[in-house]
């Protein structure tokens, strides 16, 4: 009797999950199906599949989206590599050494977590304009390089928990601070650094407001921005507009399936900060 009860419970769980998943995925599936419709199919039967599928929508969208997607990849890669290199060596210094002012300096980094970039939008915009960096990729790369506080806090905790014995032999051999970091600490921290890196890439890929202010020209446009510009200003065939949406999401999906475990770990760590 009890087992029957439990089995019924499991069925209910599966059913509710299925419903939740269905509603969650409905918009995304609709996006996919809309992206292969010509204008007639789009207007008459927007929901559900229609044949023949118009894959030429993607050719059209790709022409507009290829360069912005490349900008995104470039910006995310350069900014993430740079910010995490700086953040991890700083975290190492904060965690393993003692020097005057250390705690004060660390505090100065920690409070950055309480300053959301949104409230700095205006003065940062002025900064970019006054250096004439608007509509260059530097307008994106440089501010994104400053996203280090979370990684420093997380990595510092990691380095603090490393046993001293790991470093003893190296120190006796006269290894410098940098050598201790590159030879011992960094390799062990790889999973954590990887998770933080993926979170960083995700944050950068998701940003819309900042690029729309300082990089709204073809030579610096990012994928998210290009998607909206493509749809609102170039008035493409509606299916092609949807195809552009799929293309904008594709690189992150590839990254997700290539690094699933690290990806989830990174999101979880990043979510705590928000």
């Amino acid at each position: 009797m009890k087992r029957l009860h439990r089995r019924a419970g499991q069925w209910v769980i599966q059913l509710v999950l299925l419903m939740l998943a269905f509603i969650t995925f409905a918009p995304l599936v609709t996006l996919l199906s809309l992206s292969v419709k010509d204008i007639y199919q789009f207007n008459v039967a927007p929901m559900g599949l229609t044949f023949p599928m118009r894959f030429e929508n993607y050719t059209l969208a790709w022409k507009f989206m290829a360069e912005p997607i490349w900008h995104n990849i470039l910006v995310a890669t350069v900014a993430t590599l740079a910010s995490l290199s700086m953040a991890s060596i700083s975290a190492f210094v904060f965690a393993r050494f003692r020097f005057p002012g250390r705690d004060l300096l660390f505090f100065a980094i920690m409070i950055l977590l309480f300053i959301p970039n949104t409230v700095l939008l205006v003065p940062t915009y002025q900064l970019i304009i006054s250096f004439s960096l608007q509509n260059t990729l530097w307008a994106l790369i440089l501010p994104y390089c400053a996203l280090q506080a979370l990684a420093i806090v997380v990595l510092r905790t990691f380095f603090l928990e490393m046993p001293d014995e790991l470093f003893d032999a190296a120190i006796v051999d006269g290894a410098s601070v940098v050598q201790q970091f590159t030879a011992i600490a960094a390799p062990l921290a790889k999973p954590v650094i990887g998770a933080m890196a993926i979170f960083q890439v995700w944050v950068i890929w998701n940003d819309y407001a900042w690029p729309s202010l300082v990089a709204n020209a073809p030579q610096a446009r990012t994928a998210a921005l290009a998607l909206i510009v493509f749809n609102d200003f170039t008035m493409p065939a509606p299916g092609a507009g949807m195809a552009a949406g799929v293309l904008a999401a594709l690189p992150m999906l590839v990254l997700f399936f290539a690094t699933m475990r690290t990806f989830i770990a990174g999101l979880t760590a990043g979510a705590i900060k928000g």
Partner: peptide, 10 residues
């Protein structure tokens, strides 16, 4: 988790 990966703008 998958839908989180899709950029918010999309």
């Amino acid at each position: 988790v998958l839908p989180i990966v899709v950029p918010a703008t999309v």
